[in-house]
C-alpha cells in the first residue's frame, strides 16, 4: 500500500545509510550518540537561516541606501537626511537631482488609509459573519475560499483596476484619468480583506466556548454575546489581523504601480494620481545604473519602507501579546 510514510521511507532510505544516521549493531549505542549530536548541530545551524536572511536584507538595504547620504551625487551636490525625508519634490532626473520622498510617503499612507476605510468594515464584517452568524456548512466553505482569495496574484488585480475600474471611473466621474488614488485603494482593499477576515476569524473562533455559554446563560442575545464577550476577548488577534492586513496593503507593489497613476505629487484628493514608495522603486529601478545616486535613493526609499512595515509588524505582535487573555486557560 502506498502511504505517505512509505513514500517517505523510499526517498530517505539512502539518507539513513549516511553517517548522519546512527549505526546499528554492536556499537549501536555509540552510533546513536554521534547521530544525535550531529543532527543537533546541523539543525541548530540551519535554524538560524531566517535570522541570517533578515540580517542580510537589512545589511544590504543600508549599505546601498546610506550611500546616498555619504557620497556626493554625480554633479557634486549632497543630499541630506532632512532633504530626503521632508523634501517635497522627487525629480531624480534633474541636475541637480531632487530626492524628496515626502510626496511618496504621503501617497503610501493615504492610499493605505483610504483602502482601510473599505477593507476594515468588509473584512471585519466577513469575519464576524463567518464566526458567529453563518451555519456550519457556510463556515466549512467560507474559510478555504478566503484563503484562496488571499492567494490572488496582485498583478491580476492591478490589471482589473487598469482595464475595468479606470475606464469606469473616467466615464462616471468625468475625471481626466481613472488611474488614481481611489482606484488603487479599492484594489488594495480587495488584497487586504482576506488577510483581515482570516486572522480576525481565527481569533474570534478561538474564544473559549464556556465564556459564550456563560453570556447566554445571563440572558444576553447572540448580538450582545458577540459584541460584549466574544469580540473583546478576541481583540488582540483582531487588532493584529487588521494591522497585518494594512501592512500588506502598504507594502503592495503591483496594484499601486498599475492603478495609482504614478504622479509624484503631494496630493490628498482621492481622484488625483499619486506615486507611493513601492511603485517608485519598481518603476524606476529599471532605468538606473547600479551605484548611481538614483539607485542609492531607491534603496533609501526601501529602508524607509522597511522601517515603516517593521514598526507596524512590531506593533501587531505587541498588541497580540498585550491584550491577549491572561489568566484564562482554555480547556
Amino acid at each position: 500500500m502506498i502511504t505517505h510514510s512509505n513514500v517517505w521511507r523510499f526517498f530517505t532510505k539512502p539518507l539513513m545509510k549516511t553517517r548522519l544516521a546512527p549505526r546499528r549493531g554492536l556499537n549501536g549505542l555509540a552510533g546513536k550518540d554521534i547521530g544525535d549530536r550531529q543532527s543537533r548541530i546541523i539543525f541548530t545551524v540551519l535554524g538560524f537561516t531566517a535570522l541570517t536572511a533578515l540580517l542580510l536584507i537589512v545589511l544590504f538595504l543600508f549599505l546601498e541606501g546610506t550611500a546616498l547620504f555619504i557620497h556626493p551625487a554625480e554633479d557634486g551636490s549632497r543630499v541630506g537626511l532632512g532633504d530626503f525625508i521632508l523634501g517635497s519634490f522627487w525629480y531624480p532626473g534633474y541636475t541637480p537631482p531632487e530626492f524628496g520622498i515626502l510626496p511618496l510617503m504621503a501617497a503610501s499612507l493615504s492610499v493605505t488609509v483610504l483602502s482601510a476605510c473599505l477593507s476594515i468594515p468588509l473584512g471585519m464584517g466577513t469575519a464576524l459573519y463567518l464566526s458567529s452568524v453563518a451555519g456550519p456548512r457556510v463556515r466549512e466553505w467560507g474559510k478555504p475560499v478566503i484563503e484562496l482569495l488571499a492567494a490572488m496574484p496582485s498583478v491580476v488585480l492591478g490589471l482589473v483596476g487598469m482595464m475595468v475600474i479606470a475606464p469606469f471611473m473616467q466615464e462616471w466621474w468625468d475625471v481626466p484619468s481613472g488611474l488614481n488614488m481611489l482606484n488603487a485603494s479599492v484594489m488594495l482593499a480587495l488584497m487586504a480583506i482576506p488577510t483581515i477576515a482570516s486572522i480576525a476569524d481565527d481569533a474570534l473562533e478561538s474564544v473559549p466556548r464556556d465564556l459564550l455559554e456563560a453570556s447566554y446563560a445571563l440572558g444576553a442575545t447572540p448580538l450582545q454575546t458577540l459584541m460584549r464577550t466574544r469580540l473583546p476577548c478576541a481583540l488582540s488577534g483582531v487588532g493584529a489581523g487588521i494591522i497585518l492586513g494594512l501592512t500588506r496593503a502598504m507594502g503592495e507593489t503591483m496594484v499601486v504601480l498599475m492603478c495609482a497613476g504614478g504622479a509624484a505629487q503631494l496630493s490628498f484628493s482621492p481622484l488625483d494620481a499619486v506615486r507611493p514608495m513601492t511603485s517608485t522603486i519598481a518603476a524606476e529601478m529599471g532605468e538606473t545604473a547600479v551605484g548611481s545616486s538614483h539607485y542609492s535613493a531607491l534603496f533609501a526609499i526601501g529602508i524607509t519602507l522597511f522601517l515603516m512595515t517593521f514598526a507596524f509588524n512590531l506593533l501587531a505582535s505587541f498588541i497580540a501579546g498585550r491584550y491577549s487573555q491572561k489568566g484564562y486557560q482554555a480547556a
Binding site: 536584507i57 538595504l61 507594502g251
Partner: peptide, 8 residues
C-alpha cells in the same frame, strides 16, 4: 521576514 514587502 513574513511582513517585509515583496519589493524589498
Amino acid at each position: 521576514l513574513a511582513g517585509v514587502p515583496s519589493v524589498i
